[in-house]
Design a binder for these strands. Sequence first.
DNA 1: TTATAGATTGCCT
DNA 2: GGCAATCTATAAT
Length: 221
Amino acid sequence: MSAPPPAFDPARLKVLPREFFNRDPRRVCRELLGKVLVRREGNKLLAGRVVELEAYMGMGDPAAHAYVGPTARNRVLFGPPGHAYIYFIYGNHYCLNVSCMPEGKAGSVLFRALEPLVGIAEMERARGLAGAKASKRVLRLLTSGPGRLAEAFGITRPRDNGKDLTDATSDLFLADGGCPPPRVLTTVRVGITKAAERPLRYVIAGNEFVSKKRVLEPAQR
DNA sequence: TTATAGATTGCCT
DNA sequence: GGCAATCTATAAT
């Protein structure tokens, strides 16, 4: 059984500094778990705790979009750290990454699942689930999966690609919500065919909102 | 210019 | 568990 979610107070959000992202994506993954993704438009607030991430290692990683070098599509990955890289996949879904490493290096982190904290009714509308009877199953349908969380937060490439996620005045940013450091497990990455064996998926141990049921291997370096 | 695979999801059997 | 949906980037012709 999992522990109850820690209390969450939007007034105490502290935006993460750019230096947080100016390092190896694997390190960013470990420390980003438990932090909060925030969408703020006027008085509307959406927030979700980060519970599942994957690291992409830039030009050295055959599974990474940056593997081919800088292009019009992936140029944000080669820019300064802490910015949103959003791509469209399978003709249906947007996926959110945050750029890591110094400008010129293209590591990144893919957001695979969030735990909804604030704005659940709005997320249900965005996901086409308005009016559904409240249940754990419906809650999981909101943000458990990279395409789902993007839709729940209204994240699209035209709207959000290139945004600075360390800017507290932005309508999309990443913050420390005061969650104590969670226990982290690693597994192989999901849904890729190239370099699929590397243990670069990071999840909060035991969290209900992780996107897939799958055997979790012990955390390793 | 045409073909194919893709960091996914949801519906169908 | 299988597979269609539906667009983009890239490879092949």
